[in-house]
Design a protein around this nucleic acid. Structure first.
Lengths: 344, 344
DNA sequence: TATAATTAAGCAATCGATTGCACGTAAATA
DNA sequence: TATTTACGTGCAATCGATTGCTTAATTATA
């Protein structure tokens, strides 16, 4: 009684019934009479009974724990997805275990194993940048444990996934820039084999083509897409005297780097150069001018991912056809691409 | 064997020994011979044995789960602390359950209870804004379950806590502003009973006093400290024609709001008005001009909090004197308070 | 050789909740 | 009145690992 140690046995003893009856009463089993249920519930309250999820998990095989694996917990995008996942999990009485791969393959493998040992009921993950072998995820699938990937996904696994339409997002940005009068659009991309950057590049190319604007490889800059990379790429373009009237970066950070250089070099944004990023990082609305970007719907991506996960969890084996959900990104138009005195 | 279902009993059976021996062998118990240990470990590998943490948790009473409760998972500060906590927990084979109070009292109470039911070995929390009753945390302490608070703490609980020296941080900012020539410093604070804002206010007051500058209540604006609140406060000051030459906001967001209004109204930053925030939100380095602020050492706060937690967990009852750790904040001086043409 | 001391491993209870099966009583049907 | 049918509970096994107490086997000591 003192230490919240009350178990169903204590309740049973007090009421002169058995633990089974108490268990059933608490779980609202129809085989138990209303009268007994009321008594049990009352006594449970009186003894300050707290169900032991561990015991229940052992017996039932359901831990009500879901493992979430992200590259880093403190990147806005990921923490927002985690928030979205937790929102849903919470309403279903599931708890979220968060773990980080630090974008490392080995760590990712270890973490998946650790989550499995913790007996999570399933795993939601976003793959580390340099992961190219997926056996650890295959193992999860082989065990029949629900797995859902988001954002950083792979085609090498038959698994449900939730992504945004990177192609569309990029296409919309470039379309918007072209309609704003731009024809020489610099693009920052990454050499990494991650699908998201390739899709964005395709969106860029297709938007140009659809408007009859030639694709110029000189305008495409590859880098790691960090702020400093954005600066370097921009300086590189300027130094080579490559003509350009807009910059579309696959990353907000690199866009920010470009903005810094552009301002330092005296370019007016958006009058002389329009600038757009990707990701809708919080800072993009606070720069001067605020940066046009693509919102990745991170919280709702978390929601959808969690919903996909739970439907998998409940359906069991029924439909083992992996679902691929593609969310529509949202073009966020800000001052960096809004010119009151259009060039055309 | 197929589904990674191997248990210690399976290992025992194969080796013609008992599960107890297997358990002891796997836990490197000295009572087991080296020979047997080797055999067990080999067989465990062969059967692809994965320890069941749930079963172990039930028997041992240690879940190796630690509950982390934050107001919102997707605020940079909190997600960074979570990252810091996970870093440490991970090295000790503990898993981190993340949950959010959404800054609501009721949700916080419910969540603490849910974590308790999940049988976490302890809880790390940052209190919701409008929590004024602490019975739910008292309950945790009464049960002898380790509890550590960080950042948003309270003095009403005899509990270990990790905070930064908000007083010092604020003092340093105001000292810096005064040395930059400011004497009429607006301060944005919160009416909420959270210690952090009160401490920052004290730092503000003391710095003024130490420089012989009178405290003017008119310069202190109370609000919720969101961006919009910062705008309103700033507009309010300007509209009332209250003279001022600097703004020190207890929140970076409100500082950003102030910056927007100041720029709209034609004030030059930092030439006419210096501006400083608190928190070192990522965006503060990307504004124009970048905003001087106070770094809260979020990741290392997470590290320290976790370390405090684990020492509590290991010491047990020995030293039940709560530890209060105060981290030194770091003043990050940026252009918003660096005037090349000082007024004095 | 007999007894004590070590060493290695087994036995069985336990953690707390769940659940298939069995059982007794009361109500319903033949 | 005899026999089903329901209904409400109890019994006991189970989930997998841990651990105090024994027991058996080996070695050391008297």
């Amino acid at each position: 009684m003192k230490k919240g140690k009350a178990t169903i046995h204590d309740i049973a003893e007090k009421l002169n019934i058995t633990a089974s009856t108490v268990s059933r009463a608490l779980n609202d089993n129809p085989r138990i009479s209303e009268k007994t249920k009321k008594q049990v519930i009352k006594m449970a309250k009186q003894l300050n009974y707290q169900p032991n999820h561990i015991a229940s998990a052992l017996r039932s095989g359901k831990s009500k724990l879901i493992g979430v694996l992200v590259p880093t917990a403190n990147r806005n995008f990921f923490s927002s997805v985690v928030r979205g996942i937790e929102e849903i999990a919470n309403t279903l009485d599931y708890k979220v275990i968060i773990s980080q791969s630090y974008d490392g393959y080995k760590k990712e493998v270890d973490t998946v194993e650790a989550l499995l040992n913790a007996r999570v009921d399933g795993i939601i993950a976003s793959i580390a940048k340099n992961t190219e072998i997926f056996d650890h995820f295959k193992k999860v699938l082989d065990k029949g444990i629900p797995l859902v990937l988001f954002d950083r996904v792979t085609n090498e696994l038959e698994v449900s996934q939730v992504v945004i339409d990177d192609y569309l997002g990029a296409y919309q940005v470039v379309d918007h820039l072209i309609k704003g009068g731009c024809t020489r659009i610099v693009h920052f991309t990454s050499p990494k084999k991650i699908n998201i950057y390739k899709d964005r590049l395709r969106g860029y190319e297709d938007a140009l083509r659809d408007h009859g604007i030639p694709f110029d490889p000189e305008l495409v800059q590859e880098s790691n897409l960090q702020l400093e990379d954005g600066r370097n790429s921009m300086e590189n373009i300027i130094q080579k005297s490559i003509s350009f009237d807009a910059v579309f970066s696959s990353s907000d950070y690199a866009a920010m780097g470009a903005m810094q250089v552009l301002k330092e070099e005296g370019f007016k944004i958006p009058e002389q150069v329009m600038l757009a990023g990707f990701g809708n990082e919080p800072f993009t609305s606070f720069t001067d001018p605020p940066i046009t970007t693509v919102d990745q719907k991170s919280i709702s991506m978390g929601n959808v991912t969690a919903e996909t996960f739970f439907s998998l969890l409940n359906n069991g084996k029924k439909d083992d056809v992996p679902q691929k959900t593609v969310l529509k990104p949202e073009l966020i138009i800000r001052k960096s691409t809004q010119n009151n005195n259009p060039k055309i």
